[in-house]
Design a protein around this nucleic acid. Structure first.
Length: 497
RNA sequence: GGUCGCGUGGCCGAGCGGUUAGGCUGAGGUCUGCAAAACCUCCUACAGCGGUUCAAAUCCGCUCGCGACCUCCA
């Protein structure tokens, strides 16, 4: 466990020391996607950011229960007026599919992307449609607590009433009175007392496909109530972390806070974490804006804005090179730089795994170097502890990598650092890269034996000074995206950067 | 219009009162049959204008520019 971890809490607008409600257990809920189309770079970012948070908390020794939902019902194209259509249903009609077929297709697509970018599965991945009774129950309780009203088969949360006890807007920094005032003019929203009121349950129109029985007639749950139902079911009325994209802060998360207060009398989460957006030409990437690049397009390079394909790990690295609370601008130049840097990290991983100190050889400790390496190892965690600053952690990693490479090329004798420091260096690099940042080697080829044999031929040719042959073998490697590394005593290969 | 946030070197992107961020690109060097890789060195920026301070990219004010949320969006 680590008392040094600080996280930025949207609720307080400050960095706070992370202290779980019931250590060593940590409950974390993150809003997943509405599955009506293929996931894009923005989804990749959010999922990677929270994946690292999940991984790091686990690494620190916490027993994390990570719940990430799939929204497969109730999310409308327009939440304010009653004119909105269910996003899943709209897509289903368009493609002449069952709504659940749409859900399955894009859930699969989402999972495929996550697997490629090495995002760990959550502990529980509940679906909104699988929790209708729970959502009805919560709606009922809010109704009984007097914070909601029924109107023509729908149930709405009564913001004006709610505001007499709680501050609607505390999470997103909004003033309840302003909100009510600003919308009071908008009359004629069927059934709502106030335009700010949001639906907990909606009556299904005759043509609506996804519908369930309820005490208020046939209908479907409102968008926000699913998260309250699923988070409290699996994590309790109060849990540690609630996360999601910044764009969900209002109204989605604000409404979740309201529902939890209205139902249980408490804010559901101690820490609210929000990741910032991926931008493209300075503008937010979003499905509704049509300026998105789907993850799969990125991997195969098929999009007018892409100069070339970028591998899943390149994308992961690109995302982690920025702190999660800042915007991250897409550009080919930045992705190309990320691709090179990623390969450098992975070549370092290969190198550090091969390094070993010979127990027969005496250790002649170079105190200055020793200290420097210990410091560099600690720096990696200083970054992570500061609100999961992966950008800072990666910077430290590169500094550490310089030392690793100098040992690897024999420029510096690995026996000049102590056994403990050597072990710490190896462990830190491997842990941070693989286990925490989740960056793994993307094998270009699995014919390791073949490579090994070719390298032997290469060495022989070199020994015989048969340079035409040497160059030819190099060319073969290059064609496969690999490089031969010569050093005084050995020959090895690595990925071309 | 309201609320909030941001503007860092050729590009991306940390830092947020005093210490080299880091990556990519570019230049030079070591090594090498030539390369590549690796290592070393260099290119030292914080939108503008004021102010606070011994000291500001970092705090305050103003100006300019950009964006997010206020329907849905990770």
């Amino acid at each position: 466990m680590n008392a040094n971890l600080k996280v930025y809490n949207t609720l307080s607008r400050k960095k706070e020391v992370f202290e779980p409600l019931n250590a060593p257990f940590v409950g974390m809920y993150v809003c997943g996607p509405t599955v009506y189309s293929d996931p894009h770079l923005g989804h990749a970012r959010s999922n990677i950011n929270f994946d690292v948070i999940f991984r790091y908390l686990t690494y620190l020794g916490y027993k994390v229960r990570y719940v990430r939902n799939i929204t497969d019902v109730g999310h409308l194209t327009d939440e304010v007026s009653d004119a909105g259509e269910d996003k899943i249903q709209k897509k289903a009609k368009l493609e002449k599919l069952e709504p659940m077929e749409v859900v399955q297709q894009y859930t699969n697509s989402f999972h495929q992307m996550l697997k490629k970018i090495n995002v760990l599965p959550p502990s529980i991945e509940p679906r909104a449609s699988g929790h209708i009774p729970e959502q009805i129950k919560i709606t009922n309780e809010i109704l009984q607590n007097g914070f909601a009203y029924e109107s023509n088969g729908s149930v709405y949360l009564d913001i004006e009433k709610y505001a007499t006890r709680y501050a609607y807007g505390e999470l997103s920094g909004r003033n309840t009175e302003d909100l009510l005032e600003g919308t009071r003019a908008l009359e004629g929203q069927e059934g709502k007392k106030n335009a700010m009121d949001f639906a907990l349950w909606k009556k299904a129109s005759p043509e609506h496909l996804m519908r369930w029985d309820s005490p208020w007639g046939e209908g479907f749950p409102g968008w926000h109530v699913e998260c309250t139902a699923m988070s409290t079911k699996y994590l309790g009325k109060q849990f540690d972390i609630h996360g999601g994209g910044m764009d969900l802060q209002f109204p989605h998360h604000e409404s979740e806070v309201a529902q939890a207060n209205a139902c249980f009398g408490c804010n559901p989460a101690k820490y609210w974490l929000h990741n910032n957006m991926v931008t493209i030409n300075g503008q937010k990437m979003a499905r509704s804006l049509g300026n998105f690049i789907a993850a799969e397009q990125l991997f195969i390079g098929e999009h007018p804005l892409l100069e070339r394909p970028y591998s899943p790990m390149t994308v992961r690295f690109f995302i982690l090179q920025a702190q999660y609370r800042g915007t991250l601008d897409f550009s080919n130049e930045a992705l190309i730089a990320a691709a090179k840097a990623y390969k450098k990290i992975i070549n370092g991983l290969k190198a550090v795994k091969k390094l070993a100190q010979d127990p027969e050889k005496p250790i002649a400790t170079n105190e200055a170097l020793n200290e420097e390496i210990v410091k560099l190892c600690e720096d990696c965690f200083t970054g992570l502890n500061d609100d999961f600053n992966t950008a800072a952690a990666i910077a430290s990693l590169f500094n550490l990598l310089k030392k690793i490479n100098s040992f690897s090329t024999l420029a510096t004798d690995v026996h000049t650092i102590s056994i403990d420091t050597f072990a710490q260096m190896q462990k830190t690099y491997i842990d941070v890269v693989e286990n925490i940042l989740g960056l793994v080697e993307e094998k270009i080829t699995d014919s390791d034996g073949f490579i090994h044999n070719l390298l032997e031929l290469y060495s022989e040719a070199k020994a015989q000074k048969d340079y035409p042959k040497v160059d030819k073998i190099r060319a073969y490697f290059k064609a496969e995206g690999l490089l031969i590394k010569d050093s005084k005593t050995t020959v090895d290969w690595q990925y071309e950067e």
